[in-house]
Amino acid sequence: MIRSHHLPLMVTLATFVLAYALCGMQYPSMFSTRVVANLLTDNAFLGIVAVGMTFVILSGGIDLSVGSVIAFSGVFLAVILRDTAIHPLAAFVLVLCITTAFGASMGALIHYLEMPPFIVTLAGMFLARGAAYVLSTDSVPIDHAFYDVLKDIYWKAPSGGRFRLIGGLMIVTFVVAGLVLHRTRFGQNVYALGGGAATARLMGVPLAGTTIGIYAVSGGLAGLAGIVFSLYTSAGYSLATVGVELDAIAAVVIGGTLLSGGYGFVAGTFFGILIMGLIQTYIVFDGSLSSWWTKIVIGGLLFAFILLQKGLTWATTTRRKTATGFATQS
């Protein structure tokens, strides 16, 4: 049985299938594995960061710092590989530790100081971007043998598409995140927090640990996205990925996750990413459209999905009211 909170996911899926079919009818080559492989590769960093954003939004929060954290991670990697002899793998671990700790401390501020996530992560956004500038204001190229090794790992489909490491990493991230959200106590606590923090506390959910964990996940995944982005571009630039946090939020919302928290699936975010990537691919195929049409279509989709969410919330609350009657508050 399809439940009402599965409906946004279904709508997202249907939107993607329909859009892809329409694109494919116009340009049959869009069905090729090459296009599919590029869709995954090009959107890998965005997909990974959107997974973290899904955790945050499911819990009823928001994380504006992720775009800056990606840029910081990229610059950090570039600078450290240029100036020291550290092996990239060790540098990756270092980046993940820093960004996870950064996210965790934002989570701690949000919980213990009872600050709105919006403000705390806004401060985090400026901090991370500033730190990136301090490391370097120029675009620093990454030229390391190990990077070439990683970039050469791919699986070539029979029809020519190259499925690269970073695309695979994104898919693994989605699968693991799905498991964590649906099959662990931490994941259930994320949903519980989004359903109502006060109730969750009364039901014994450890609010502090959960909140800190959620922002740590988001920070850590932003770090991972930074690593992926540096592999993708072979450079670190402090002005890169400005506004990516907003793209990630858009992908999560288009994926059917309720902005007020509590309802949604990480699988929806995956299709949200694919829809956004598809629009870009279509514009490339068309060739005559301005790339700004991407933004316009995403804007339109966002509006449509917000209206859908509002409609669903409204439908469920009115249904509940008839069941409840009026609760006197004497």
């Binding site: 909170h5 498991l179 649906h182 099959r183 662990t184 106590r185 259930q188 606590n189 949903y191 519980a192 989004g194 359903g195 109502g196 109730t199 969750a200 009364l202 039901m203 014994g204 959910v205 509590g262 309802y263 509940r320 609760a327």
Partner: peptide, 27 residues
Amino acid sequence: QEVNLLPNLTVAENLFLGRQPTRLGLL
């Protein structure tokens, strides 16, 4: 008086939140 359960979870999830049965570390 106000039902203090979470509206976004299922009946079973509400009943077992915080003490869910697990197998191999997963719920």
